[in-house]
Amino acid sequence: MSACAQDAPLPHRPAARPPVRPGWAGEPLRLAALLAPAAVVFAAFFLLPLVRLILIGAGGTAGWSAYLTTLADPGHLDSLISTLALSAGVTLVTLAVSTVAGLFLVRNRFPGHALLVALLTFPLAFPGVVIGFMVIMLAGRQGLIGTITQALGAGKLVFAYSMAGLFLGYVYFSIPRVILTVMAAAEKLDPRLEEAARSLGASSWRVVADVILPALKPALISAGALCFATSMGAFGTAFTLATRINVLPMTIYTEFTLQANIAAAAALSVLLGLITWAALAVARSVAGTSVAAAG
């Protein structure tokens, strides 16, 4: 890539230029020189590790077919499916909750409004480990929910160390991003559109279905894609809750550190990356707006 930039003259600049502005003669070279640091960093910290990862995935006893056989392993396939289901569920629930809350917050001003928005966006500041810790405080063995259900005589309800706990944690930390996106989009809704629909006899529900949701669609798709991608790859919360939780990042971790099955770990990593990237790409093409990947 950097070599290409050095060899080829820039298409819009004639090679032989009358020396009207002498300083411009060596411009392609200078541009290439300026680009070089970025290109080096890009190659060293992005391209090389990625290529290496792909090669390691194919470096096991099975060779390139490892990418297929990894998924044939029932444990891995199971892990992939449950991760996909978890992420899809988290995305849908987060979108539903955030759309309602975001619209409400944009349309209603009340004392404490700013404080509430600040509180709702607070989880943005937490790493996954802290989220996991909070889920344990809520639904763990000594958690609030368990204590309450026990006091009510319904037995101790504990679900922190399972998919349900992970689901709760992911929804909790996905809500801020989605709510902020929804609020930004809802601010831009033209109130006249709703008034026009109402003047034509539309009930509140019809206005939501026919006017508000279509207008929010691009924002919802892009926020949903981010939410999905984040849930697919998140690790800290799962790791905090239980090492047995069967999601793909945990499986990769287990293969890598406990089984020392580095080739399988690499192959699964590449698959995880591909699936997440594909989800973002589909969302981008449907929404027609830029959807950035998140870590």
Binding site: L193, E195, R198, S199, G201, D210, P214, A215
Partner: peptide
């Protein structure tokens, strides 16, 4: 009566046509 039950026609400066 709210607007949706008054049976009025409205035309706005910004057209307010449904873009979808």
């Amino acid at each position: 009566l709210p607007i949706e039950r008054r049976n009025v026609g409205m035309v706005f400066q910004s057209y307010a046509l449904f873009p979808n």
